[in-house]
Design a binder for these strands. Sequence first.
DNA 1: TTGCTCCTCACGTCACGTGAGGTGGC
DNA 2: TTGCTCCTCACGTCACGTGAGGTGGC
Lengths: 272, 272
Amino acid sequence: MTAQLTVGDFSRMTHLTVKTLRHYHEVGLLEPAAIDPATKYRYYTIDQLGQAQVIRRLRELDMPVADVKAVLAAHDVADRNALIARHLDRLETELARTRAAVDSLRALLEPAAHGYEVTHRTVAAAPAIAIEAVVEHGDLGAWWPGAIAELHATVNAQHLRVTGPLGGLYAAELFQEARGHSVVFIPVAGAVKPIGRVHAFTVPAAELALVTHAGSHDDVDVAYSELGAYVAAHEIGVAGPIREYYLRDPQQYPDPASRLTEIAWPVFRASA
Amino acid sequence: MTAQLTVGDFSRMTHLTVKTLRHYHEVGLLEPAAIDPATKYRYYTIDQLGQAQVIRRLRELDMPVADVKAVLAAHDVADRNALIARHLDRLETELARTRAAVDSLRALLEPAAHGYEVTHRTVAAAPAIAIEAVVEHGDLGAWWPGAIAELHATVNAQHLRVTGPLGGLYAAELFQEARGHSVVFIPVAGAVKPIGRVHAFTVPAAELALVTHAGSHDDVDVAYSELGAYVAAHEIGVAGPIREYYLRDPQQYPDPASRLTEIAWPVFRASA
DNA sequence: TTGCTCCTCACGTCACGTGAGGTGGC
DNA sequence: TTGCTCCTCACGTCACGTGAGGTGGC
């Protein structure tokens, strides 16, 4: 009753190519029910068809093979559905990213000039509360809102007096190697009790060249480029993290398009 | 005035990693403006920043590097925009495919049993008009509607009498190697003038086992599996193309979910 | 002099696809 | 006996990332 299906048979039934079936055997995703020891022929059975169909659909959704394995190995339906739901969430995120990239491309190609005016500013060291971590560039979008929210919660819980705008410090490696030390901070006055990821921090003094970027962070590289070009042309760059000040607090302005960000590059002291 | 930017500088400005910039140099996508012959150091200029920004956005949208090159080399804005628009169309298609795969996955995981009833049928050879081609499995969805439309147009133009439902013949390789000979046909009576891709064709006689599949073609592999399993279990399979009959003509039922398709597998003559 | 930045190989990743060259069953 | 189906290497694809090991400029 358990009819032996050859790769060809199984391929026709599942619409997976023979090459793909052999590959799935090799990586242990879908092993033939039997293998002829003499001829090495692969034989599948009818009750493997269901697995093959699930595999095909998950791969169609670009779920990594390792994750597909996990789905097949899931002990119960709840586990399985959770794994699938997580992947669908990833797809959603991807989709949002694509949409943002399309908008960003459109903005870049629009003939409207995006002239940034470069200004200079001297800032003194300032006490603050901060959260720091080494972050992947791609994870920044996820890490950032959580950190901001935690800082805000701490300000409220400890009744701290805010003395300046929300800001961030980003090591050069974050851009050069897509992974680097990042700090988000809120300048505050008074004593701070460390809690969770939040601790007292001193925002270092600096001499800065800066531009203001309006709109989504997806386009922020244009501002970085203009500012960097200015710094390079005037040969005034110095080492140190790049700084951003968020003039529209995301708590009050959740729409990314309404953001207003100062990008600040560390430079030599400009002769006043 | 043309400040020399090192990879590191350029990386910080564009948010492309140093590794990526080196890679783009190697594949000729973005060549440094100058290279120190002694140290092999790469130097970029400020006016290369614009190109880098376009590249970054297009790669963010997964446009292949070769296509990005074409965009940068485009002679005028119209050419450039056409290339970009084509890619955005591809993204749309991708998105539709993903949505379909999600639906299909949901349908598969739904506990509702999809019991297909297998029936047998003997069909005689029948005259028809047809379009044939060797098609990629992935291109079927694009090839098929055009071919159908052309067949319908021919029926109307030549006032042919339709004698049976729209159908298709698909070589096994189409599933096993994702590329194979495909035919779509409409059975007709009377003389046929070949025109365009359309020619007279005789749908061969056959002994068939078949199931009826309701709904989108994205789920059709389930029907293929059940039918294939039946054929294998009864050991009645013979060589020959797989046949489909489209009982709801897509011209009248454009919604993919409303489709009704007979899947027919060639088998031995069953003793009546 | 010490880090820092830059360099070049060479190999890895991921999910298969593409031949080449050869064997078993009807 | 002839095709057909199946097999196993070995290498290619795509867009980078990951070290290893080494050099030049402040």
